[in-house]
Amino acid sequence: MDHNEQPILAFQHLSKQFDDQLAINDLSMALYPGMVVGLLGQNGAGKSTLMRCALGIVDVSQGQVSLLGESSGELSSKVKERLGYVPQQPFGYEGFTVEKALQLHRSFYPDWDIKLEQDWLARFELEGKKQVQRLSVGQRQSLALIMAMAYRPKLLILDEPVASLDPIARREFMSDLFDLALDSGSAVLFSSHITSDLERVASHLALMKKGKLVIFKEIDRVREEIRLITLKANQSLPNELLVLNQLGEQLLVDNYHEGIAPLCDAVASVNLEQLFMELHR
């Protein structure tokens, strides 16, 4: 990927302190056009806080966050018009019908694509006349997705976006994410606990553990370079290997390559779900 261009979203040595708790610990990461970054981590690892810092909803304690070249604390309306965000529990527009809510929401975004909105309303089977507060959790989430995506934002941030959608809606929604990332040159940051979805959709994996960014790399490289190994007796750890976790003799390592194999008694590849489990054992 060509990274000469400006990142859409960049965290530089970001830390966020809540009272006595360090929620984000010296985190650096940059998202470029076309990147779909899957954010994985246990509850409380700092995923939602990271997203809120990115959008300037919470202040940062240390370091910097920039969006389309602007600092997250001082975003201009020009930049805000190009951001999309769906929180874990969408809220707002209670007392409106779906139709009226969309009408109002649309008025904030000059680039709103009415055809896209209509297509998605039909696909999610949302009725325009229905009251927003009477929608099911999944429908409420669908509406929030339409509201965040119908203007093709440059940066889309989704906190557990698909948890309440049925499998078919999830699949279709994922295809929309690709279209957005590739056709509009946008970047997407989304968190999910559904690792199989994440493996399909994401171009990059960002894995957080206790406020730290433990892994950030292309998903194909994650599969090739992260292994569960057991070194031969008396074999010291090769310098290039980064130990992510240790469980007795077994090491979960990053930066693995073929040259390491002769030094090991056992080497196993891991899928995302196994990686997640092994990292937190």
Binding site: I219, D220, L272, E273, Q274
Partner: peptide, 10 residues
């Protein structure tokens, strides 16, 4: 098969 350990491109 996304949940196999092999990269999807491969």
């Amino acid at each position: 098969n996304p949940s196999s350990g092999d990269p999807i491109y491969r």
